[in-house]
């Protein structure tokens, strides 16, 4: 019964029902009505995601442990890591803002990287992958909530605001953060939900036939 549905597809944005067409790796299939991108092919998607998510997880450590900026005025100095933004606001009584910064700049990117690593690792090495569905759901639902690139722009604006009144020093954390943003952006480009769900389908059939 499910087999009869494979030649059809509906647009996720306007619900237009169309017939599935074959596409070349460099061709996107576009909805004829609302122009949403329906499906496309990403070459070596899983391998690329595995590499990128691993790189991201590694970069996440210096980006969060080393100071982003250090400030020096009259011999006193103060340095800043991402987590400290949330902490200082929390101490200042702005609990909601602190929580949002913690979520958007630390927790969400970390969960997404872990989910991505789990998905690509499981699919690449054909592990059992009991949590594949959950990992996919968390990654997909958290898209757009990781805001490291906005945080980076915030750092740049802070530098410009403070450069006249204090000596600023850019720390290792800022470089790691910039690299982490590049890795996360690339991984969101290579994340092809349609294709990965299809691979999960195949993955499950294979593991079932092994039983």
């Amino acid at each position: 019964m499910q087999g009869t549905l494979t030649h059809l597809i509906a647009c996720h944005e306007c619900d237009l029902l169309i017939e599935r067409v074959a596409n070349q790796p460099d061709q996107d299939v576009i909805c004829p009505r609302c122009h949403a991108r329906l499906y496309y092919t990403t070459l070596n998607s899983i391998e690329r995601l595995l590499a990128l998510s691993l790189a991201g997880l590694i970069l996440f450590i210096p980006a969060n442990l080393f100071p982003i900026l250090s400030l020096r005025v009259f011999g006193q100095s103060q340095s800043e890591i991402i987590l400290q933004s949330a902490l200082s606001l929390y101490e200042g009584g702005l609990i909601v803002v602190a929580l949002l910064i913690l979520l958007f700049a630390v927790v969400v990117p970390l969960i997404q990287l872990i989910a991505l690593f789990y998905i690509s690792f499981t699919l690449h090495y054909r592990w059992e992958g009991r949590l594949l569905r959950q990992a996919m759901h968390s990654y997909q639902h958290l898209r757009g909530w990781g805001m490291l690139e906005i945080f980076l722009l915030g750092v740049l604006i802070s530098i410009i605001k403070l450069k006249d009144i204090a000596d600023l020093e850019i720390g290792l954390g800022l470089y790691s953060l910039a690299a982490l943003i590049v890795v996360i952006t690339l991984s969101s480009i290579f994340f092809n939900p349609h294709q990965i769900w299809h691979q999960i389908d195949l993955h499950r059939k294979q593991s079932r036939s092994h039983d």
Binding site: L71, Q78, S85, L89, I150, G154, I157, K161
Partner: peptide, 19 residues
Amino acid sequence: RWSMLDIFVIGILVALVQL
């Protein structure tokens, strides 16, 4: 989501300028 910019700036400034 880019509207969160000002919030991040506040967070960074508050953490940094504690002299």
